[in-house]
Amino acid sequence: MLARLKRDLTMAEAARGPGGTRVDHLVVAQMVERGSRVLDVGCGDGELLRLLEQRGVDGRGIELSREGVNEGVAKGLAVVQGDADTDLAAYPDDAFDYVILSQTLQATRRPREVLEHMLRIGRRAVVSFPNFGHWRIRIGLLLGGRMPVTANLPDTWYDTPNIHFCTIKDFRDLCEAVGARMEKGVALNAWGAPLRLNAPWWFWNLFGEQAVFLLTRKNAGPNGRTRAR
């Protein structure tokens, strides 16, 4: 039972679309307008940045791990070694059209401050994260009684960089707290397919293994529309 659970949980991470592009990256990229200026916070080895640059985006990245940075820079990407928790403060207001936090929110020490900085630096923010409210995680914890360890989340609880897991509902509350408006949202199931758009929040929270949200500041103007629930 547990073995099968683990395998299934890896599928969203492995889910790749045409050309081998990660599905969650495609979802993020589709939320970003061509020709815009983008900062990818926690850009890893720059896979998403490359995808964005292929789409005519002027992309920059911040990455904590030295190996990731050096790989990205050697590929010719504009990546800086830095920490989302401390280095975002150096960026001026409205420096970017989009600030992206792809699968990194759960690894930050102060997710709320990071999100606030993102909304300050960028006119829009895109956040993707693994949903800890997914039914398999709930059942794993309920029946297995242990924190899940999967290829998607491969570290044991005591040495994982992921220190701030949240559910889709939790994230919605955080957005509310920092004054962010959800303009678009996509939840992906375990196979990387998007869930029905008109599904209620509880359904997303239970069946979405990953979620991607496009956010704006609530005081930024009336152009955005909160996703109808």
Partner: peptide, 8 residues
């Protein structure tokens, strides 16, 4: 447009 790498 800036890249920054620290080499170990």
């Amino acid at each position: 447009r800036v890249s920054f790498a620290e080499i170990d």
